[in-house]
Amino acid sequence: MTVDPLSEPAQARRRTIKVFLGSGLLASFASFIYPVLRYLIPPPVADLGGDEIVASKLSELKPNSAKIFRFGSHPGLLIMNSDGTYRALSATCTHLGCTVQYRSDLRQIWCACHNGIYDLNGRNVSGPPPRPLAVFDVHLRGDEIVVSRKREA
């Protein structure tokens, strides 16, 4: 221990500086490091990416039925045909933006709002819809049905 040659008030001032600088630096570094550490830990919700989504599990759909899934910021319609094949389309009607549904009795896609009808290829076959529905790619991965945007050829 060296004896401090400084006077009492100077010592007090030195202590104040120490407190301010020391705790300030410590606290500020903590407030910088903490968010960064939290940021580094990946969140539990995995990011699947914008052009691909798991629309359903294999067991969820029966032949000749369909379900609505979320695709990005729009609803999508996944249909299982009677022969066991899958089809995925945009579920937003091209007329006024209602959500379309699969009619197992008609084997067609139907918009309840103004009786618009699309075939299973998304083509607008009757009623007011001015354009076909966008069609997505479907493939199976394990027991998951994965829907992705159509790749441009």
């Binding site: 968010p35 960064v36 939290r38 940021y39 990946p42 969140p43 919700v45 990011d47 990416g49 914008g50």
Partner: peptide, 14 residues
């Protein structure tokens, strides 16, 4: 866009 959205909403302090 989706990944930036992910950073903004899902990642802590993103």
């Amino acid at each position: 866009f989706e990944s930036v959205q992910y950073i903004m909403t899902q990642v802590k302090f993103g």
